[in-house]
Design a protein around this nucleic acid. Structure first.
Lengths: 329, 329
DNA sequence: AATTGTCACTCAGATATAGAGAGTGCTAGA
DNA sequence: TCTAGCACTCTCTATATCTGAGTGACAATT
């Protein structure tokens, strides 16, 4: 364990580093603590030996290690009171009844991304939690039809397709009726399989050209799996952080953002606000991800804030706590 | 006008620069043309005076100007024959009948982005070209409903909302029936207005809590306008180009990509393949955009390739020509 | 035993200098 | 009209030097 002044030094160093992004020297701390720089240097050396601080080179100031951040988050940090202004901004959203739930979350995260200069991610409920509510096929002009799939959580996917002339509206209706009769209530990620083994053999008898219809639905269903219902807010915000001020890091993080499946690990099991510092997350060693579940009138998912490890933990945690207390039902 | 050997020199310089991204000196050209470097230097000086070439500094090799690229595209470039391999890759997509039209275009552009290392953009038909085909509201669990809007081109948007207990299924049905009766066939971008002035006054009489339903549709409709149905393929490809190997340019281009409305000018009026070099496009002076319309079984829109000004014009134009000849109906 | 003052030492970053190489413009001659 | 040659310019790279921030260690002080 660490001594109480050591804790104080660690806290000050981390907070200074969060503010400036520059290695922190002993002198800037001794001003605050009113003791000599030599004293602080001793404490710093001790903290480094324990693994809470690091040096960038032999005679540089200190930089927090992941272990240091972790200790800070677990033991030293207090969620920072929000300013009245920030609170107000968010409250106008909650009190705007004309906004639908998902739009409200979106707007909130836009504001939070703005306030913090980090990137937010919204991950909706996964396909395994969505059950089939209804399918339908609607004829359009020129032999085009649109196949629509709706889930019980209110997600909608669609696929357009060209059908051949000699398929009749009745045949289409037969197929959709059958799917609606047999598959409603099935989790989306099991639907494809059932479609293959339960529906296909049956419609093969009634419907001459069932392949096309079958494929349309099959594709619409698999869309759920690939899309996984995630999107970013303020994607370029994190790029403003000084840690990404070199071409390689910049490219690396952008490519990870585009390659969306990587961030799948954002899904959160536990109900609190969880902090994953650097290598603690599977996304990127250079970032911290703070994430939490939301559940708002049946609609649920995870929201996450992605920032540098040198993140304003106190501010972000406070924001998310406030957000949660306002949206969770 | 330019002399014939001057043309040849310009062509060689541009093609060399496209390959290497480095200023081209007279010696590398005189090897090919079998004359002395001094001769080439004279030609180069002339081409520079005419504005087709530029220097990065007083004693550097030459770099094509926008005017130079323009001349090259208009007069010197021949679309480059595709390799059999490339052709094959694209053909397997066209011959895969199980793919829906929009997916096929997607896949093609994925391949093209890969082959060229540029970024592709697909812009679907705009909201003014889409007419309302049908609206519906589907009840979900716990007073949630999903409002769905479908257009005649087969685009689908939806909005979830929580309705109050005391609104009945009949009232919802009355509203949707009314909209379907009065507004089907209306261009999407005119629907909001009609909703306000034609539908709202009427349903106000029948439906007690019409505000919620009204808002859901209103939001779903406006989604079309904001979403504008665009997406990128290989978004990070262009970042691999050496011209974006510095932090500022990198950030600038990424931010422009995110700020999607800016690229609205990608919409194309004319039917051919159009090249917009640097300042000729409104997107970014550092890039060239090559774009063309597609129309495939009623579905239409614009596809665009975004690359550095130092783009392989001959290759991209050939690819797009081939693509067009295969998809246009 | 903890704190402090002092001092030699280290390293990043800024600045200056020099040399090599690529490329040019110009001029005179073929 | 083309070419050879030459002086010149500028970038790029490498190297050296200097400065300032910061450290560790140790002896002196509280």
């Amino acid at each position: 364990m660490i001594g109480s002044r050591e804790e104080q030094v660690l806290k000050l160093i981390i907070e200074e580093y969060i503010k400036t992004a520059k290695p922190v020297g002993s002198s800037s701390i001794c001003e605050i603590l009113e003791c000599s720089s030599a004293t602080i240097r001793n404490e710093m050396a001790e903290l480094e030996k324990l693994g809470y601080l690091e040096k960038t080179h032999i005679s540089s100031g200190r930089v927090p290690s992941e272990k240091g951040y972790r200790y800070y988050v677990d033991n030293l940090m207090k969620p920072k009171d929000m300013t009245g202004e920030d609170m107000l901004k968010l409250q106008t959203i909650f009190h705007n009844n004309s906004l639908q739930t998902s739009d409200a979350i979106n707007k909130c995260l836009e504001i939070i991304s703005d306030m913090t200069n980090y990137t937010s991610v919204i991950l909706g409920s996964s396909s395994s939690e969505n059950k089939l509510r209804q399918v339908e096929i609607l004829p359009l002009e020129d032999n085009n039809v649109v196949a629509i799939v709706i889930t019980d959580k209110g997600h909608v996917e669609h696929k357009n397709l060209l059908i051949s002339e000699n398929i009749s509206i009745e045949e289409i209706k037969t197929t959709t009726d059958l799917i609606n009769k047999l598959l409603v209530g099935t989790p989306i990620d099991e639907v494809s399989e059932k479609l293959e083994f339960e529906i296909k053999p049956i419609i093969g008898k009634y419907v001459k050209q069932h392949e096309a219809i079958y494929n349309a639905f099959y594709n619409a269903f698999s869309e759920f799996a690939t899309k996984n219902n995630m999107h970013f807010v303020g994607k370029t915000n994190i790029l403003k952080q000084p840690e990404f001020n070199n071409v390689d890091k910049l490219k690396k993080i952008i490519e990870k953002f585009e390659n969306k499946d990587i961030i799948n690990n954002i899904k959160e099991e536990d109900n609190g606000i969880n902090v994953y510092i650097g290598s603690e997350n599977d996304f990127d060693d250079d970032v911290t991800i703070i994430k939490t579940k939301y559940d708002i009138g049946g609609e649920n998912g995870t929201i996450a804030i992605v920032g540098p490890k040198r993140m304003e933990y106190d501010k972000v945690v406070a924001l998310l706590e406030y957000l949660k207390s306002n949206i969770d039902t």
